[in-house]
């Protein structure tokens, strides 16, 4: 488990077809079991960093290895095998609203069962057990047979987390997981992510916009600015000046969750 959960970026560079630079040559080592928060203003390359780990956004040059294996640059069996071990959580949940919660979570098992079984919705009992445990870990097992679209936003994000957990992943990538949630739900979801990291030892990368959340929940904080790594340190040691450097300006109330809630 431990080896599979390490991520190493070497000169990772992403240039989009329109010329925008996503990552401008990033070198970064993430150790197994770490809880890393990535901060930066929008367009700084946070999403690109996460999406390059499971190949959703292919690198232009450089390399990324996950558990020592390089991330393939083309869609295919190799990349699907790698993705099977990397769970992803999205800002907009990305669950299929017309399907039941259970089916959405079982989607996390697609790469672990024979293709025909997945195709016909005939899941082995063991996989259904895994899905149920994933739901229990985020405390919504009681909603297993509800239509996913009928749940509240926070509950839908829990379905997204359960789907990632059902993969039994070594790594979880959470791309702005709380950006569409209210403050109370935000803290619940962040606590869930931290607890999962501690209990299961899953390496976790979280993109966050809010500075106070980053400082409160992160172990290690990584700052990105225009696709470059401009900060890498522990959450305890990060200072106001560091944030100023990352954002290119003084942080204001809009960068703080609890402040913006108050205002």
């Amino acid at each position: 488990m431990t080896d599979k959960a390490a991520i190493r970026f070497q000169g990772a560079r992403v240039v989009y077809p329109n010329g925008a630079v996503g990552l401008a040559g990033v070198d970064l080592d993430i150790k197994p079991g770490e809880f890393v928060v990535v901060v930066g203003s929008s367009g700084a390359g946070k999403s690109t960093l996460l999406r390059s780990v499971n190949g959703l956004t292919p690198l232009t040059s450089g390399s990324i290895t996950v558990g020592g294996q390089p991330v393939p640059k083309k869609e295919g069996r190799e990349l699907r095998r790698l993705r099977a071990g990397v769970g992803m959580i999205f800002q907009d949940f990305r669950i299929t609203r017309r399907l039941s919660v259970m089916t959405n979570v079982l989607v996390g098992r697609v790469a672990h069962v024979p293709g025909w079984r997945a195709m016909l919705n005939l899941w082995p009992a063991a996989d259904r057990e895994i899905a149920f445990r994933a739901l229990e870990r985020v405390s919504i097992a009681d909603k297993a047979w509800v239509r996913a679209g009928d749940l509240s936003g926070g509950q839908q994000q829990r379905v997204g987390i359960a789907r990632a957990l059902a993969q039994e992943p070594a790594i979880i990538l959470a791309d702005e997981p709380v950006a569409s949630l209210d403050p109370v739900t935000t803290h619940q979801i962040m606590r869930d992510l931290v607890r999962i990291n501690q209990e299961l030892g899953i390496t976790t990368l979280v993109n966050l916009h809010f500075l106070d959340l980053a400082r409160r929940y992160g172990q290690r904080i990584i700052g990105l600015k225009a696709g470059e790594l401009v900060y890498d340190g522990t959450a305890d040691s990060v200072t106001q000046a560091d944030f100023k450097n990352i954002y290119g300006r003084d942080p204001d109330a809009g960068d703080l969750l609890d402040e913006s809630e108050a205002s």
Binding site: M102, A125, R128, E129, F132, E136, A141, D142, K143, A144, W145
Partner: peptide, 15 residues
């Protein structure tokens, strides 16, 4: 539904 019968507290899949 062995899984759901195995552990109490899990809702049964509605018929």
């Amino acid at each position: 539904n062995e899984a759901s019968r195995a552990a109490p507290g899990r809702p049964l899949r509605p018929a």
